[in-house]
């Protein structure tokens, strides 16, 4: 079993791991010849299934194993993220699977070179008045120094039959699909709404009340985010968003029969009509965790299955010629009625 790669884009890799880490502590990482798959399945809440093209993170990349050259690992995301963060100014960074004392590790080797700009490094021959016995003769080459940092992240290797039981959720064809507005905007508004709804409920301790956001969209470019409590009802409406065209090759049915085609007949572009909305209710905390993916700056298409589920497809920004990387988030609606209080 061999895995070795040089990291081409530590920034993207760091942000990826940070986004995944907000959902759950552990990721199943599947390495194969073309892609790196990251899957986070928390005990409850949103799952993410991500397929990342190798060249969006790595430069040179080798993966070998007895099981069809596929390696499955369970990786603690906090540690991987922390390790990657220290590579922010690295001149090169490499990651490989290794073993120490029989414990599998992902070893991240970071090389930093910095020309010593601050006074912390000896530049001139050291004068020998510091009380040490011997003068220190060694001179620096070129006034730049190279430091090698090794971060070791303990991992667990998963056998193929362990991961064979993990399946990506299946969902019916969505009623509405829409390109979301900038996530920072969406996140700030939903955070604000959640905060407002918690006023007076004194969310001290772990027994903070659960808050649910209601998200609706129609096939005329409208998205509505609202929150209702006993005391108030607030909503925010976006219009003029785009509903991407369906790719006939991606769906099994005739486009004319697709639920979204029927939804197109209903509702209006100003969002005032009561008809044509597909709605899901989502736990506000869970939504906040999902919004964490905004740091990657990708396009996000939201697919609404009315009263059932919300699926977000996050397309990572790519340079030309790169294969596309997609992160798929599966959010379940949390049912009807008044918000659960605990």
């Amino acid at each position: 079993m061999r895995f070795k790669a040089s990291i081409q884009n530590t920034n993207t890799f760091t942000k990826l791991t940070a986004s995944f880490n907000s959902l759950g502590p552990l990721a199943w990482v599947k390495l194969d010849a073309e892609h790196v798959h990251f899957t986070v399945i928390p005990e409850q809440g949103t799952q993410v299934w991500a397929v990342v093209s190798i060249d969006s993170i790595f430069d040179t990349y080798t993966v070998q194993s007895a099981a069809n050259n596929v390696i499955n690992l369970e990786v603690p995301l906090v540690l991987l993220n922390r390790a990657l963060k220290t590579a922010w100014n690295a001149s090169s960074a490499q990651i490989r699977l290794t073993k120490k004392d029989n414990v599998p590790l992902l070893a991240l080797t970071i090389v930093t070179t910095s020309s010593s700009s601050h006074a912390g490094f000896p530049t001139a021959p050291t004068n020998n008045d510091d009380g040490f016995d011997a003068p220190f003769e060694q001179q620096l080459g070129g006034n730049s120094r190279e430091t090698i940092i090794t971060q070791e992240v303990p991992v667990r290797v998963l056998a193929p039959d362990v991961v064979a039981g993990l399946h990506e959720p299946q969902c019916r064809e969505p009623d509405v699909h829409i390109l979301l507005p900038p996530l920072l905007q969406l996140k700030s508004i939903s955070d604000r709404f959640t905060k407002l709804s918690l006023i007076g409920k004194s969310g001290n301790g772990s027994a903070a009340p659960r808050t649910r956001l209601e998200l609706s969209a129609n096939m005329h470019g409208c998205l509505k985010l609202s929150i209702k409590t006993d005391a108030m009802s607030i909503s925010s409406l976006w219009t003029d968003l785009s509903n991407p065209e369906l790719d006939p090759s991606q769906i099994t049915m005739d486009i004319a029969d697709h639920p979204s085609t029927k939804m197109k007949q209903l509702g209006s572009a100003d969002g005032r009509s009561e008809e044509g909305w597909a709605t899901v209710r989502i736990d506000a905390r869970d939504w906040g965790k999902v919004m964490s993916v905004g740091r990657l700056g990708g396009r996000v298409v939201a697919c609404f299955c009315h009263e059932f589920a919300l699926i977000l497809y996050v397309y990572l920004p790519t340079d030309n010629g790169e294969q596309e990387s997609v992160l798929t988030y599966y959010l379940k609606t949390t049912g009807h009625g008044t918000p659960l209080s605990s």
Partner: peptide
């Protein structure tokens, strides 16, 4: 095993020391 902390090694050229 996954609850262990991150182990970090920083290798510095001895030339970067004053002594």
């Amino acid at each position: 095993i996954l609850k262990h902390s991150l182990s970090t090694a920083v290798a510095v050229n001895t030339g970067d020391f004053e002594e």
